[in-house]
Nucleic acid binder design. Structure first.
Lengths: 205, 205
DNA sequence: AAAAATACTGAATATATGTACAGTATAATA
DNA sequence: TATTATACTGTACATATATTCAGTATTTTT
């Protein structure tokens, strides 16, 4: 699946909205009307691009012969994602006793797929707009880059910080709050386990 | 809803099966082919009967303009919520030209129901954890309390601030960033329109 | 620097499609 | 008994629609 452009996304959304509203797909002219194009060929070329990239299929010759291809990882685009609150020392993050509740959320809700929500404690990342009780969408991965907001485990405590690799053996975990100190980790002495990284945030107020 | 005949049921089933298979409704000719009719008018009359009895609706003039009317078996808990970006001065917020795209999201995602996502510009609310390009879930209402994060319209500009009523005629819009000034509004002189209030926040990174 | 992809306008056209009209026949209803 | 609904065939046609061709311009990739 190649990358979709913003205009192509608009066309794809337009098709979905039209489908929800009417129960059948739009014509080229309908898409033009919805999105302000003046030539049916504008819609046509976008449709062909979306087809080429695998987002839709087009039945040749058939009117309104557009169908959206649902090629998600899971057949259903919805999932119950666990919300992880306080993590008991030493216990695996996703252990049942750590799951406060679940949230139903489309799989493709954030840019990347993700595995769980982590409920934030404290204000160490407040200048990055991460406040107490915010829910961070966490993708489980150890593949993190400088500047990523990572969920790290240090001495059986889970912490959320910016990731900065200073040298092959020195990693700094940097808060976004001047009242907090950088955490410097010498990988030869201390154990650092990267749980994953933040791919999004959810706040309910 | 009148009683359906066995042939009409076959036609209705045929429409549903065709929809499941292709993603769009059949033409009269398609129905004929599936059910062995030799005249498109056979399908037509059945469709008109189904329409009259309330099982389907037919969009006049539109090809494949058939939609099956759902007897509300399951209320769908999903919706496409518009994302509002830059709002042109003087235009209604939800006008089509302001809708950047839509996000599929459960209706009960935040504590309260909501109407659209507003894409945040600027950092005037950064100390409340609201950063540039964050998406605020906005519930359209004028019923706001002190301390609520409101979406307000002032001189055809949309702004997000804390709401503080100082007296019956004085309202203050308070930013969460020391680099910004409070906005004091005398309701007798200035026009203040409350679009709604924030019921949640969404960040994709 | 050339080629390909994106993002359009505008016009033209073959055909896909809804729909009306003319029939035939049977069963249900008033 | 007359009327209406059901259940078809068959023809015809206006128009709804997909799709091609000819341009222009910008951005991205090779």
């Amino acid at each position: 699946m190649k990358e979709i452009t913003s205009q192509q996304q608009r066309v794809l959304d337009c098709i979905q909205i039209y489908l929800n509203k009417t129960g059948f797909p739009p014509t080229r002219a309908d898409i033009c009307k919805e999105l302000g194009f003046k030539s049916p060929n504008s819609a046509e070329t976008h449709l062909r691009a979306l087809e080429k990239k695998g987002f839709i299929s087009i039945e040749s010759g058939a009117s309104r012969g557009i169908s959206i291809i649902n090629n998600q990882e899971y057949p259903i685009d919805d999932n119950e994602y666990p919300v992880i609150g306080l993590v008991a020392a030493g216990s695996p993050t996703l252990a049942e006793e750590n799951v406060e509740r679940t949230i139903n959320c489309p799989n493709s809700f954030f840019e990347s797929d993700f595995d769980y929500f982590l409920k934030v404690k404290g204000l160490s990342m407040k200048d990055a707009g991460i406040m107490e009780d915010d829910l961070i969408a966490v993708k489980k991965t150890t593949d993190v880059k400088n500047g990523d907001i990572v969920i790290a485990r240090l001495d059986d405590e889970v912490t959320v910080k910016f990731f900065k690799r200073k040298s092959p053996k020195i990693v700094e975990l940097e808060p976004a709050n001047e009242e907090f100190q950088n955490i410097v980790i010498n990988l030869e002495q201390d154990e650092l386990y990267i749980e994953g990284k933040s791919v999004g945030l959810l706040r309910k107020n």
